[in-house]
Design a binder for these strands. Structure first.
Lengths: 358, 358
DNA sequence: CTGAAAGCGCTTACAG
DNA sequence: CTGAAAGCGCTTACAG
């Protein structure tokens, strides 16, 4: 038996070559490949087999141009220094959940990292105008966020991970910062604390406002007067936590408890406290934010809140699809913004009871 | 003065509308926008102004189809559970360096996260066949890595972060695992250690082989017999570090030092050691791998190795472009694989001297 | 310096 | 069930 190896892959550039090889029209090849109903089963089998053999997959640009849709969803990531240090694997954790939904519809997810020296707004504008994606997921929403206005105006389907004052009526999913702040304050108050500090981000990120507001309301509910001095503004990072410790130590009539808005702050805070001879969970109550593998080593263990990132990702995906005409029917039930709950994971860092003052 | 707001944005869908509005041909609009030389300066200005006004940017699918190039570079990310836990912000750190180079040529970077339930090979194959990117950056290379054979065969320009036995003569950049292993062994031996353990990954990732090989050679250089029992295979994670501590404690004639192949292992290892009443840097010498902000809190401070991720990213980008016909001339000097050095950051975890045995 | 036209690789009415 | 043809939005030889 003689094999002619070179005949096997005769420049299988596109659908035309595949059709020629099969001696049928490109239209039929296309229909067969795309699972259209009106194709002879025998023909379809031949086409599929040949495509598999030659590794043919439709050129995305050709498809997109013709269909007016890219079947790609973009997840915008800001790779600013602060985000890099903060986000740890938040996005990679969410990604799998997103894809579990998108894959049902042959939609591909791409992450679009905005360069740190480019304005996020301009970056997004360019990506949107070029039509590289059908829809967008944005995150790290700011209180005033022009990106949202842009997306609304351009009528690009999108969902935001985070609320914002901008954009009017857009769809978002946000973590339950109110719930976390309220739960943390309630818990601390029940253990006898009255002077409760909070470490909040120094940036204009929207969650900072939400968190501090809820903290304030929770305090007032317990008849505790809100003291602006106890709101410590620092960077959302390990270093920020260290600084928060610094500032905490300088407050006269020192707080007996602190709530952190970002999990890795706990690492820096613990270090600063240890340096000052203060033991978390004995001399000062600490409640962290998101449960995080990296913070699990902390001694004493950190009271924090649990969240399933894949589930959050899936919810984001379903909410996004609910806003896209083609899929809106299927995901009709998800067509609303919502608050994503977190679950308290009690640990040692806030376990002690305050002695009531004499 | 009367404004007719609706006239301002007359369905500015594409180049045709823009051309009509300017009353010139689409060819001229295209040439003006793309900075071709043979365009009247006056005309160019008008075109640019109108494009800015209407927010026109060329549709990427149209461009790609015509030019046969997407001007997009893909960075494949494996979002497998293990990778998610490990990679922390490694990729986001590299991203900025990549973009600093790509942006010089108007190339966009997209991250392509492979779903954890999809075979990385099949995923890559699909992405490549669809021509969504002009070139690829892959990482986490395995000892045998079909992805590399695929890319070579498909003649897609690519660069690998990591070596592999597959693919023959492809271009890669890899961290200097040999240098790190050798430096660590030399350092420990000079402090009197003879029984030096190593924590290596249990997976087939190529760096594991490289690292252990170099460790072995370094030992032999000092006349120390390689003992397979001292190679502890664990997951590259904090948990893996904890397990490594476990196994270390069970070794009869316990090692006096351990070298870690992954930075976050140190966190788990420290915890296990503390539980056993063993103080790192006093009872056991520990050398970590990459310097990492999250591991900086460790007490005693961890001896490790420094690397600039943005610089690594830029090097990857330049090496990749050197392999793309259009850019090969400019980046001719980067057209070679290479080992990326790391710099020792001495700290406390291995600072003590061993007492010579009687 | 500009315009008219071809064609990149597809999908999809439309005819048969 | 299949084929022939149009056309998605661009860029680029080619003519003038």
């Amino acid at each position: 038996m003689i094999r002619i190896p070179h005949e096997r892959s005769p420049q299988m550039k596109g659908i035309r070559q595949l059709a020629e090889h099969l001696d049928i029209s490109i239209g039929t090849v296309s229909r067969a490949l795309n699972g259209k109903a009106d194709v002879n089963e025998e023909t379809r089998k031949r086409v599929l087999a040949a495509a598999e053999e030659f590794g043919y997959v439709a050129n995305q640009s050709g498809r997109s141009l013709r269909q007016g849709t890219t079947n790609v969803i973009g997840l915008m990531i800001e790779s600013s220094k602060e985000t890099v240090e903060n986000s740890d694997n938040f996005f990679l954790g969410v990604t799998d959940g997103l894809q579990s939904v998108f894959s049902r519809h042959n939609l591909d997810l791409v992450m679009l990292p905005c360069p740190s020296d480019e304005d996020p707004y301009e970056y997004l504008k360019r990506m949107v105008a070029r039509r590289v994606v059908d829809a967008m997921i944005i995150s790290a929403t700011q209180r005033i966020d022009k990106r949202i206005d842009l997306l609304v105006k351009a009528k690009i389907p999108f969902v935001a991970l985070g609320r914002s004052s901008s954009g009017g009526n857009f769809t978002w999913i946000d973590l339950d910062f109110e719930g976390v702040a309220t739960c943390a304050v309630d818990r601390l108050v029940s253990k006898g604390h009255r002077r409760i500090a909070i470490a909040a981000p120094s940036s204009e990120i929207n969650l900072g406002y939400v968190f501090v507001d809820a903290y304030r309301k929770a305090l007032e509910k317990h008849g505790i007067v809100y003291d602006p001095e106890l709101v410590i503004r620092v960077k959302s990072s390990e270093q920020g936590g260290y600084r928060a410790g610094d500032e905490l130590l300088q407050i006269k009539d020192r707080p007996t408890a602190i709530i952190l808005i970002y999990e890795l702050m706990a690492i820096g805070l613990y270090r600063r406290l240890v340096e000052a001879g203060i033991v978390p969970g004995r001399d000062l109550a600490v409640i962290g934010f998101r449960e995080e593998p990296r913070a699990r080593f902390l001694q004493p263990t950190l009271t924090c809140f649990r969240i399933s990132l894949p589930d959050l990702g899936a919810a984001l995906a379903e909410t996004l699809l609910a806003g896209m005409p083609v899929y809106s029917e299927i995901y009709h039930d998800n067509a609303h913004s919502r608050i994503w709950p977190l679950k308290l994971v009690p640990a040692e860092s806030d376990a002690f009871l305050m002695q009531p003052e004499a």
